[in-house]
């Protein structure tokens, strides 16, 4: 561990090695996410962004290395300690992962019911405020099968926010959303990070969104099996020595020679 400002890094990934059996996805990946920042994970398809995210939230166990959430190793923690870590996290999955047999309001109420002693009307009210945060006010009685894909994403974000976690992970929040809704989501992320100090870890491909919200980002690469760039998005776009990074930020098609 580096001694510099340990309380500043809310997530610390140390020498992470991930993979399935003989298939290695990442090797020697280290970075840290600072409290209150919006941190973006970028990279082309298949470079393991979602795999990395799933290690960060403790769904997969690393082959080597550690993921520390507020100083605690999430893969090693068990029982109450693991629950305490998980309660600091909210996750929006790529496809929403809303429970299909519950209404949107019930989806948001579920963590409140399980972890708090709030009275019924309080949970209803809080669920409604979360839905309004993502512009779904009054839609709490609908079930996931009755709403569009974009609404599903927004409802999933609302559910991730149910317990006002310190860290919210968003897996492609803008994917499949129209530009207006996408911009509103960016605005929501900034507002929440500003007012509540929530730390966001966002997987995204949307360049406007990256520049609008991300304080810092890392870019992963499939061949390197790790990080090829880290820093502020604007700096990387303008000053990165790596052509792959500039290509990503400038939305350029890959040169024919580079395509192996």
């Amino acid at each position: 561990m580096t001694p510099a400002a340990p309380q500043d890094a809310v997530i610390r990934v140390e020498n992470l090695k991930t993979g399935f059996g003989d298939f290695i996805v990442h090797e020697n990946v280290s970075f840290e996410v600072r409290r209150g920042e919006v941190f973006a994970i970028l990279g082309g398809s298949g470079c393991g962004k979602t795999v990395l995210l799933k290690h960060m939230i403790g769904l997969y166990r690393p082959l080597a290395g550690r993921v520390l959430i507020a100083g605690e190793d999430i893969a090693a923690a068990e029982g109450e300690r693991r629950l305490a870590i998980l309660r600091r996290l909210g996750v929006m999955y790529q496809l929403g992962a809303l429970f299909g047999n519950m209404t949107l309001a019930e989806n948001i109420r579920l963590p409140l019911e399980e972890y708090t002693d709030l009275p019924d009307e309080a949970m209803d009210l809080i669920a409604e405020t979360k839905l309004r945060l993502v512009n779904l006010g009054g839609a709490g009685h609908l079930t996931p099968s009755e709403i569009s894909g974009g609404m599903m994403k927004r409802a999933a974000i609302a559910r991730a926010l149910a317990l006002d976690p310190e860290i919210v992970f968003l897996d492609e929040p803008a994917g499949g959303l129209d530009p207006i809704t996408s911009a509103e989501l960016d605005e929501l992320v900034l507002r929440l990070s500003d007012s509540l100090g929530i730390t966001f870890v966002v997987i995204t491909h949307e360049l406007p969104s990256i520049f609008a919200i991300a304080d810092r980002c890392i870019m992963l690469d499939k061949r390197v099996r790790g990080i090829i760039a880290e820093g502020r998005p604007a700096d990387l776009r303008d000053h990165s020595p790596d052509p792959r990074v500039r290509q990503f930020f400038n939305r350029a098609a890959s040169a024919p020679a580079a395509a192996a």
Partner: peptide, 11 residues
């Protein structure tokens, strides 16, 4: 004061 606190004030 997070979302739940705001909920109480709204209530």
């Amino acid at each position: 004061c997070d979302g739940a606190g705001v909920g109480l004030l709204l209530e």
